[in-house]
């Protein structure tokens, strides 16, 4: 409770300052709309169903892109973490790709995948693949050799060592990777929608900019932040349910 209370202090002060500045008309309302105006824009968007439409489109994109990344990054990460041989061939390319932000590839992605869903999925995939892949890989590779010795001394086969020791030991790293990936994909999606989209929360913001509605821009930003936090929170709690020993630490 105290944590929540302390965390609320700064936002409340910020809101007050914001309110006072707009109240005293320090800047033109066109540059900085008042909290009331942003609230009105938000309720208006919510009432018309427009907000729900854009949000559901964005969330759907994140869901599928994220799923796609998880289905490829985890198996590949395990393979890479297990096999030094495989890793020696891959590390350079991976290191290179890791440092190229997916947003830099947007022009090409649009050229190849068009402006439809495929390009968004590609961007989310690119953004969420690497944190997950690298976490899985290092989780497998950093498995405590002392635990592996326990398995070996009890006569475990190689497959049994992976299944019963390395994988569970890497689970925590994989979970962290999933959480990071989800955050990355949410942010990358907004970026993608800002550049080329006809729907989604990023598009909503871009559209508002073109229509000179800073209140809607701010309302959109608010939504992005809140939804991102909620996603993270929900995700973590689902995982804690699934992994009992994770929360008992």
């Amino acid at each position: 409770m105290k944590r929540i209370r302390n965390g609320m202090i700064l936002p409340v002060i910020l809101l007050l300052v914001w309110y006072l500045i707009t109240r005293m008309q320090v800047f033109s309302l066109y540059l900085l709309p008042s909290p009331g105006m942003v609230w009105d824009a938000l309720t208006e968007l919510a009432a018309s169903g427009e907000l729900a439409k854009h949000l559901s489109i964005s969330l759907r994109r994140v869901f599928f892109g994220f799923l796609l990344a998880a289905c490829t990054a985890i198996p590949l990460g395990i393979l890479c973490g297990r096999s030094r041989y495989f890793y020696t061939y891959c590390w350079f390319l991976l290191e290179f790709l890791r440092h190229v932000p997916p947003l830099a590839a947007i022009p090409l992605i649009i050229l190849w995948a068009g402006i439809d869903e495929a390009s968004k999925l590609t961007i989310i995939f690119l953004a969420s693949f690497f944190p997950l892949f690298l976490n899985t890989c290092s989780g497998i590779r950093n498995c405590d050799p002392k635990l592996l010795e326990v398995g070996r001394s009890l006569g475990f086969s190689k497959a049994q060592l992976i299944r019963h020791i390395q994988l569970p030991a890497a689970l925590e790293a994989i979970v962290t990777g999933l959480q990071l990936s989800l955050g990355y994909s949410w942010r990358a999606l907004i970026g993608a929608e800002l550049i080329a989209a006809s729907a989604g929360i990023g598009y909503l913001i871009l559209d508002a900019e073109e229509m000179s509605r800073p209140d809607i821009v701010l309302a959109g930003m608010l939504c992005i932040g809140i939804i991102g936090s909620i996603l993270d929170w929900v995700f973590l709690h689902i995982l804690q349910r699934l992994i009992p020993w994770y929360q008992k630490k």
Partner: peptide, 27 residues
């Protein structure tokens, strides 16, 4: 069937006490 008891417990943190004791069964 030769098995060591190590200096440190080396338990699997994701398993309960009972599951840890029965760990060799997985092999």
């Amino acid at each position: 069937k030769t098995a060591p008891v190590f200096q440190e417990p080396r338990l699997m943190p994701w398993l309960t006490v009972k599951e840890n004791i029965m760990f060799s069964q997985k092999g």
